[in-house]
Simulated assay, not measured.
Amino acid sequence: MQINIRLFAGLAELFSASSLKFQAPEAPLTAGGLKALLAAAYPEAAQQIHTSLVAIDHEYAPDETPVTEDSEVALIPPVSGGEPAVADGETADGMFIITGRPLNAEALLDKVLDQNHGASLVFVGTTREMTGDQLTTALHYEAYTPMALAKLQEIGNDVRSRWNANCAIAHRTGLVGLKEASVIIAVSAAHRDICYEASRYAIEKLKADVPVWKKDINESGEVWLGSDPKAKAYKSL
């Protein structure tokens, strides 16, 4: 059967394509089996394939998850990198946004304000110039937009259920220059200690689970953050 596989970040660069049509043996086929077949078919990409996760229909898929021709399959490299910008998107309620346009902290904060909440907090992650002795000129972000929005919404749902707090998140794609915002998280809650705790939870979950990648553009060249074990992940934060 033929499986259409979406590729991102370093894998897309390696294959010089954003998708791959792969002829696999007939069912049953699992996510783990698909990775093994891909690694065998493309030995030059085997290391990147082994360190990537499989997503099926916008959800991370354990190795035993069945794969069919109708599945929307994506190969997800370690998150935090970026290259070509993708289409803008947002959830139906407007609380979670992926966009190539500059982010607006005031507009995002307005989405979470509540007359019964006495505290609000806005976290802004920006591109910084220096990390140690390494100079950055810009970052370039890529996102798997449908899955990224679903994962951001999961974070918002977690924040509401755990702290009875409101949460909205916006993330940039494309080129993000020095001092520009790459991510904004707005939280409101009954008390300030809840706001701080919920905001920290949201950014840590975003860094771990949301399929967004970025490339560090610097005076020495370019490097994928997250895919290079020597690179510092999520440099802007």
Rank of each mutant, 00 (worst) to 15 (best):
I98R: 09
T91V: 10
G33R: 02
T99Q: 01
E106S: 15
Y42I: 03
L38Y: 01
V112Y: 03
T99E: 05
L29P: 00
V112E: 03
P62M: 05
T68Q: 03
I56A: 11
V112F: 04
A45K: 11
G32V: 13
Q48V: 14
I97V: 15
D70Y: 00
G89P: 08
E44M: 00
F96Y: 15
L37M: 11
I76S: 03
E44H: 10
H58D: 14
A31S: 04
L109W: 01
E69K: 07
A39N: 05
A27N: 10
M95L: 15
A107E: 13
A107H: 10
E72Y: 03
A36V: 13
M95P: 00
P84S: 10
M95F: 11
E90D: 14
L34C: 03
A39E: 01
T68Y: 00
A46Y: 07
L75E: 06
A74L: 08
A107R: 12
T51W: 13
H50T: 14
A107C: 11
A105Q: 08
V86M: 10
V67Y: 06
A39G: 09
V73N: 05
L53F: 10
A107I: 11
L109Y: 05
V112K: 02
L113P: 02
G94M: 11
A41F: 00
L109R: 12
G82N: 07
Y60I: 10
A87V: 09
T51L: 14
E90A: 15
P102M: 02
H50M: 14
V79G: 09
E106I: 15
E90K: 15
A41M: 00
D110F: 00
T30A: 02
G32S: 08
A87T: 13
A41D: 02
T68M: 03
L75N: 09
G89F: 06
V67D: 11
E83D: 14
L38G: 05
S71C: 04
E72S: 14
E90F: 13
P84Q: 11
P84G: 04
G81P: 01
E83R: 13
T68I: 05
P66C: 06
P28A: 03
L37K: 09
G33I: 07
S71T: 01
P28F: 00
G82S: 07
T99H: 06
V54E: 03
I49A: 08
T99C: 08
P102G: 03
T68K: 02
A36E: 09
A40N: 13
A45E: 12
D57H: 07
L108F: 07
M95W: 11
G81N: 04
E72L: 13
L34E: 01
S52N: 10
L38F: 02
A31R: 01
P62H: 01
E83V: 14
P28R: 04
V86W: 04
G32N: 07
E69A: 13
Q48E: 15
T99G: 06
L34V: 06
P78K: 08
F96I: 09
H58N: 15
L113Q: 12
Y42A: 05
P62A: 09
V79H: 08
L109H: 07
T68A: 08
T30G: 05
I98S: 06
A85D: 10
P77D: 05
D70M: 12
A105S: 12
D63A: 14
A36T: 13
P66W: 02
